[in-house]
Design a binder for these strands. Structure first.
Lengths: 244, 244
DNA sequence: GAGTGGTCTAGACCACTCA
DNA sequence: GAGTGGTCTAGACCACTCA
């Protein structure tokens, strides 16, 4: 029997259940890839009907936080178990699909957060960050240069070895090596000219138009944990988006 | 009591209800902006429980085909009634929001469908199309040049007068003047250099990097009805996208 | 065959809107 | 106060997976 009342505004029961599930996921009670208890079990624990649990789980499944598998159970979504490892990469060859994806690490360094990075990561200016740079090839064509920035505090000991060990799959690494699960992201896209450095990395002439992708990635409760900036050669590839 | 059985594979009842609702929407039984019958009413008509109707309506609401308003009813989504008239435009100023949106029509012409356009619109090559060109300004800055192509057969008599009369709000015009409701779209983005023509329209130097947006817009049952191609000056604006 | 999520029902009651 | 969508329950049964 729940005793607390919402301070203001109406919060349905299933949302409070959802909040409790999110809290437990965030605390690591159930790890990515693992099953959570069955709906009947959860209903008994929370002393609500199965329908109410289903509604809470349904919303989390809709947000790709949980994955339901009929006949098997409900699982914590995992970047390691995503079939393509590409769930957050919207780039596709103009003809055909992504058959092969290869990342080449350039470097991993400690840097100080500038004012903008700090604000976007909700850290103090000057906070210690880890900056990782790499290139990505799709089907053998190197088309993306990107850099990622994360808090050095949250990702202690993050260096080239850890990255290589996880085959450059960053979100999968964050999740298994640092227990930081990326659940959503916001991207802003622009068209820019390649400067000399990036042109060299992508084997194009300086001044070539590139698609600039800037991303903020969030963990549970919309806490920002990673900034990413990518430059993509879109001469034979495009960014695909569905609008509804 | 339903008698037909699915030919193969299991189709739950609520999906058949959903299909029937879609059919009626597509046939124009309920028009954009109008309410559909209440859930209790629909449940009686279809001889199912309210819960089953709710599930069908819920999926259509999730696809932005219907809009539920507690205490008032469920309405057919309408581009004319969307608050911002921008539901499909993902462009935002880097600082601030879209306060004012203004379109300037360039021309409206009949053209023949090239092989690609024809294929994407599921029409024969050489079919008659209407091509509309315009520029768009956000908060007084002209940042987008775009052209739209639709079947001349489906949009009979589409000329500059019709467009102007609807204040350049194309999807709203398709819906009210031609009973064609756009419900979804797919976009592909690239970075390109401005050619002389487009540079002139956007008041930029030729060679300026622009964001190219190519879109296929669909009506009910994923029937393609419009092709659009836009070139955006992203020096002070960006394309915003949410990834989950 | 046991266990899981998925569907469907009937019914009670709640939050909200509008006349 | 009538009517709408929104929540919640309890229970039956179905589709699917796996040992």
């Amino acid at each position: 029997m729940k005793t607390e009342q919402p301070v203001s505004g109406f919060q349905p029961l299933y949302r409070r259940i959802k909040a409790q599930l999110t809290e437990r996921l965030s605390a690591g009670e159930w790890r990515p890839g693992e099953p959570i208890p069955s709906e009947i079990d959860l209903a008994q624990r929370f002393r609500v009907s199965q329908g109410t649990v289903r509604k809470a789980v349904g919303e989390l499944a809709g947000e790709n936080v949980l994955v339901r598998k009929q006949g098997r159970g409900t699982f914590v979504a995992s970047h390691a178990h995503t079939r393509s490892q590409l769930s957050f990469l919207r780039l596709t060859p103009d003809d055909g699909s992504v058959e092969e994806l290869e990342a080449e690490l350039i470097d991993v360094r400690r840097i100080r957060a500038d004012a903008t990075s700090a604000r976007m990561l909700a850290l103090p200016t000057g906070a210690s960050l880890v900056r990782l740079r790499r290139t990505l090839s799709i089907n053998g064509n190197r088309i993306l240069f990107e850099e990622a920035r994360v808090s050095a505090d949250l990702f202690q000991g993050l260096g080239p070895e850890v990255v290589e060990r996880h085959r450059c799959m960053l979100y999968s690494m964050y999740e298994s090596a640092y227990h930081v699960k990326i659940v959503a992201a916001e991207e802003q896209l622009k068209a820019v000219d390649a400067d000399a450095d990036i042109a060299a990395f992508l084997d194009v002439a300086p001044g070539t138009p590139l698609l600039l992708m800037e991303r903020v990635a969030y963990t549970y409760d919309r806490k920002p944990v990673e900034l990413r900036r990518g430059f993509c050669n879109t001469s034979r590839h495009h960014y695909a988006n569905e609008i509804t």
